[in-house]
Design a protein around this nucleic acid. Structure first.
Length: 751
DNA sequence: TAAGCATTAATTTTT
DNA sequence: TTAATGCTTA
């Protein structure tokens, strides 16, 4: 087996120990994905059918990549492994089994917006104060209840939860939870948590002994990123693995130090429980880091040492010392953008990095803007991940809502969205009345709609709408998803109403819908391997499921060369030659929420920082600023992040930055606060380099006054070296003497 | 009912 | 700063 030679000893053991429960603790860059894929390949090579293997990953993209890598080892059949996120795999199973637990198999998936809008309606119907019951709070509360396997009934009886709610003056949350669940069921809809919750419920209540079917089917189960699973997810796994005479072929891979989703209910308790739940457990620790150089790896170790709880582990690298970590400090946020991009330009030039090799990582998506602007100014191509995804745009959601309404007429949220778009004279108050009637008479929105009587004008409008939807439904069986979507777009009058808008935005909306239609076409035409056969399952509801679970992390990196901009969360599992972690400021990274939450919140922020730092292969740059715009207001009282002091000075290079000082409004240094023992302050002002056009190296002569991108103005003292490799010694006004290699540096001539 | 205008509230991370 | 909500008027 050739692939076994590509592994180190521990990795190989983790791959070849195929029977029984196995836990792999995998530090960052330790070849985790390789172990997982080779393990699966190894299973297949030893006679296990690909479709008997279930692999649960964190993103769909990770699953896809894994399948491709498996296929490289074992051939095409590798693609037939069951691999996907918890959500997508269980959605697929529920597509088949949902009717056993009272849902239609064509159930729709409510995204966060749908869920919140439904919650809002419920609060209104219950005549509760919408200020007291904001949808965000309700959603989080319900989500975390589900993630902890707390049913509405259990919630009602749960003393701690009820006390918390009472203290927050929200005593009716349990009732809202109950109604919410009922309404989702009536609408034939599941929210993200339900995909797991209902899956658990299916296995737990076990109608027609369905659990047996899946225990038989999935003989080997692998879970990636186990540290980010919640109790509910672990519960499902146990249902599938724990039964009499089970071989318990379960392999979980994770790293407690990289657990960054506690806010979503994930708990490293699962890792700890795992050892208790599976007595025969074999543990393998992967500690060698193949990704980063030593300064980075050791800085990471230093950082995580500040956390209280963790599994003993120390990652190491033999890739050499490498470059020190650079720290940039600026006065304003704009300048932070400029400096980061300046450093990027420098690395591109001096180290020949392509844009692809570079990532800017931030704590909050809102930070991207400043870097986007700076990159645009320098004409550097970039791609922003996260934020508003394609499928969240209004016009895209509108058309999708039509499709949802047609597939499942009980999908109340979709129905409400399209009933008066484009405007057809069914106004707010009418919709309100219908909603109320439905809630009061225990009917669905659609049932009321079909027989609704209002003024003759609205009644006619409603009749026409119902007629239209029913007509669409007639085509559902005979036509494929693409045909139907295009048909609906036209006949619903959406097309005309979009065409009327000839503004720039209007045109771009039209383009987005066209792109959506193209996407549907693509989906219809591409076959997918499912199980041991190719199933042409191309109906609309499968399509809707796929896009509902699509996230920006699943976006393919397009083949053009672009700098990556993303949140630290979405950078999980990725690596780049050069990484910039920006906005390292108190109350931003760590976030102000964590600061008030206490030590647990802070530990999670630190793990997040650990993840960010360990994304870098060769170059790591940290940046922060003294003042920043926050919701339109200038905050110039920013302190550097506590995390900066945890990196370890021996790994940091403070080139050109002034650390550990705060400045008052006139730019004077103010007495030191709490950032100790930082690099000496060289100059009290940052070097403001004016724009210049770089000249060819051959034009640089001794005695010239030149401009350097980072060091500012200086005088060329001496030239040495061959013409092709010329080195200039330059006396800079701001930073003193520097040796500059002309072929890499960009210099402008002043005189 | 629908569109236009004014006010106000809210901003962490994501399947 | 932006998004969303509320209010007024045709």
């Amino acid at each position: 087996m050739k692939y076994l030679d590509e592994l180190n000893d521990i990795q190989r053991q983790a791959v070849t120990t195929t029977k029984g429960p196995v836990m792999v603790i995998a530090g960052p860059g330790s070849g985790k994905t390789r172990v997982l894929t080779y393990r699966i390949a190894h299973l297949i090579n030893s006679g296990v059918a690909p479709w008997e293997i279930l692999t649960l990953t964190f993103t769909n993209k990770a699953a896809k990549e894994m399948k491709e890598r498996i296929s490289k080892v074992v051939g095409e059949r590798g693609g037939r492994v069951w691999a996907g996120t918890f959500h997508s795999v269980f959605a697929r199973i529920l597509r088949v089994e949902a009717d056993k637990i009272g849902f239609p198999t064509s159930f729709t998936i409510y995204d966060t917006d749908d869920a919140k809008s439904l919650l809002k309606n419920i609060v209104r119907e219950k005549n509760l104060d919408s200020k007291q019951y904001p949808p965000n709070v309700l959603y989080t509360r319900i989500s975390s209840a589900k993630s902890n396997l707390i049913t509405p009934k259990a919630y009602e009886a749960h003393k701690t939860l009820r006390d918390q709610d009472r203290m927050a003056k929200r005593p009716h949350i349990h009732a809202i939870y109950t109604t919410y669940m009922a309404r989702c069921k009536k609408a034939g809809a599941m929210d993200f948590d339900d995909l797991l919750y209902q899956m658990f419920y299916l296995l737990h209540s076990n109608p027609d002994n369905v659990v047996e079917k899946y225990r038989q089917k999935f003989k080997y189960i692998l879970v990636d990123e186990f540290q980010d699973t919640n109790q509910l997810q672990y519960g499902i796994i146990r249902k599938l693995v724990n039964y009499p005479k089970s071989e318990q072929n379960l392999c979980v891979v994770g790293d407690d130090a990289q657990s960054i989703y506690a806010f979503r209910g994930a708990t490293i308790q699962n890792i700890l429980d795992f050892e208790k739940d599976y007595k025969a457990l074999q543990v393998f620790k992967l500690e060698q880091n193949y990704r980063s150089t030593e300064h980075i790896v050791q800085a990471a170790n230093n950082i995580i040492l500040n956390n209280r709880k963790q599994i003993q582990k120390k990652i190491w690298s033999d890739k050499g010392e490498g470059e020190k970590i650079k720290v940039l400090r600026t006065v304003t946020d704009k300048e932070e953008g400029k400096k980061v991009v300046g450093t990027i330009m420098e690395q591109k030039m001096r180290d020949h990095l392509s844009n692809n090799a570079i990532a800017i990582l931030y704590r909050t998506n809102a930070q991207s803007r400043i870097f986007e602007e700076a990159l645009r100014r320098q004409n550097v191509k970039y791609k922003v991940f996260g934020g508003l995804s394609f499928y969240q745009r209004k016009e895209v959601k509108d058309l999708i809502a039509y499709l949802r309404a047609v597939v499942n007429v009980n999908d109340e949220e979709a129905m409400r969205r399209v009933i008066n778009y484009p405007v057809r004279g069914i106004g707010k108050s009418t919709i309100e009345k219908i909603g109320k009637a439905a809630a009061e008479n225990d009917k669905t929105f659609w049932e009321i709609l079909k027989t609704y009587q209002g003024t003759s004008r609205t009644t006619n409008a409603i009749r026409a709408f119902v007629f239209m939807i029913e007509n669409f439904r007639k085509k559902l069986e005979a036509k494929d998803a693409y045909w139907l979507a295009a048909h609906i777009f036209e006949k619903s009058n959406m097309e005309n109403s979009l065409k009327k808008d000839t503004t720039v935005q209007g045109i771009s909306r039209m383009e987005n819908v066209t792109n959506l239609l193209d996407g549907i076409k693509d989906f219809v035409e591409n076959d997918e391997l499912i199980d041991d056969a190719t199933i042409p399952d191309k109906n609309l509801s499968t399509y809707l499921q796929t896009i509902a679970l699509h996230t920006s992390a699943d976006d393919d990196k397009d083949d053009t060369d672009k700098v990556t901009l993303m949140s630290v969360h979405s950078a999980k599992g990725l690596e780049f030659k050069s990484v910039f972690v920006v906005g390292l400021e108190e109350n931003l990274f760590p976030s102000f929420m964590a600061t008030k939450e206490g030590p647990e919140g802070m530990d999670e922020e630190r793990r997040l920082f650990y993840v960010a730092v360990t994304r870098a292969e060769r170059f790591l740059t940290l940046s922060y600023t003294g003042s920043r715009y926050k919701f339109g207001k200038l905050d110039n009282n920013i302190e550097p992040s506590r995390f900066l002091t945890e990196v370890g000075d021996q790994h940091i290079d403070y080139v050109g930055s002034m650390l550990g000082r705060s400045y008052d409004s006139s730019g004077n240094s103010v007495s030191e606060r709490r950032t100790p023992r930082y690099a000496p302050v060289k100059k009290a002002v940052s070097i403001d380099v004016p724009a210049f056009t770089p000249v060819a190296p051959s034009l640089i002569r001794e005695g010239l006054t030149v401009l350097h991108q980072r060091f500012g103005q200086g005088k060329v003292d001496k030239l040495s070296g061959a013409a092709s490799n010329r080195i200039a010694i330059i006396q800079f006004d701001a930073v003193g003497e520097k040796r500059i290699m002309l072929k890499y540096a960009k210099l402008g001539i002043v005189e």
